[in-house]
């Protein structure tokens, strides 16, 4: 009986998967058709909406070009480093603000104002501090993802079921034990969401900084292509950037294993 159930649910899962895939392919075809239609309609400047054939050709040419891979490497390094620094500090800051009432009262309003400020206003300062190289990009990426992560972790800390903390208190746990055995596992879902959000924001921060002022990176390459009015190459670069961000996001989602039963792949068969 169990075996039959598993086969059935397996079949259902597979049919559902293929249906989703079909819809995705249809959506992609529709978008490409609209794009081609808009390009051919003559409503826009010639060349602003190049045929997807040209974009694909540009993409393939880029993928074979070592100069492109140089830019790609620089940007990837900036994003990953900025994200790592910003999210590590953001998590620590969020735990601090959330766990300590006074730290919360002092820093939270400030953090909230700063979180809603566009981080690009810091760019001139960062350029002076770190130069136009990777330093200013990494720091803007880090600052961008620090605030939303710190605020969402702090809110999640305050939402932890107080019973968990009382159990910890009644067992006389040390601060390290409380963080390791109660706060972190209780916060894992919030941390996972926060990190995925933070990765996207760090990516925006790094690229923003590259586009404004830089001599390397995908943002720089895209601006160069724009300057040459090489729209297919520019679009191909944007596709690469988009794919990188999406890939990073889903990679983080996969790497963080949520504790507890809801996330387990195999459901439990009761004995």
């Amino acid at each position: 009986m169990v075996a039959v159930g598993q086969v059935k649910s397996g079949l259902r899962a597979r049919t559902r998967f293929s249906r989703v895939t079909i819809y995705r392919i249809v959506a992609l075809v529709v978008i490409i058709a609209l794009w081609e239609g808009a390009g051919a309609s003559g409503l826009f400047f010639r060349g602003v909406i190049p045929s997807s054939v040209f974009v694909t050709a540009a993409l393939l040419r880029l993928l074979g070009d070592p100069v492109f891979w140089g830019h790609f490497g620089v940007t990837l390094f900036e994003i990953v480093t900025g994200f790592a620094i910003g999210s590590a500090l953001g998590m620590l800051g969020g735990l601090g603000i959330g766990m300590n009432r006074y730290a919360g009262q002092v820093f939270e309003p400030v953090a909230e104002y700063l979180a809603s400020t566009p981080k690009v206003v810091f760019l001139p300062i960062l350029l002076i501090l770190f130069g136009i190289g990777v330093g200013s990009k990494i720091s803007l990426g880090a600052i961008s993802c620090f605030f939303p992560l710190a605020l969402s972790i702090a809110a999640a800390v305050r939402n932890i079921n107080p019973m968990y903390l009382r159990v910890g208190q009644s067992l006389n746990l040390t601060l390290t034990q409380r963080v390791k055995m109660i706060y972190l596992p209780a916060l894992t879902p919030a941390i996972a969401t926060g990190l995925r959000l933070g990765f996207g924001i760090a990516t925006v921060g790094c690229l923003m900084s590259e586009i404004k002022l830089s001599n390397k990176g995908l943002g720089h390459a895209a601006m160069q292509a724009y300057g040459r009015f090489d729209i297919p190459t520019m679009l191909a670069l944007l596709i690469v950037i988009f794919a990188t961000a999406a890939l990073g996001n889903s990679l983080i989602g996969r790497l963080i294993r949520l504790p507890g039963p809801t996330n387990r792949r195999v459901t439990h068969v009761p004995r």
Binding site: V167, I182, P185, A186, T188
Partner: peptide, 16 residues
């Protein structure tokens, strides 16, 4: 450590 408490509210850890 000599005193153990069981609470009125639900207190098991859902992730364990």
């Amino acid at each position: 450590p000599e005193i153990g408490m069981v609470f009125q509210e639900e207190s098991t850890f859902p992730w364990r």
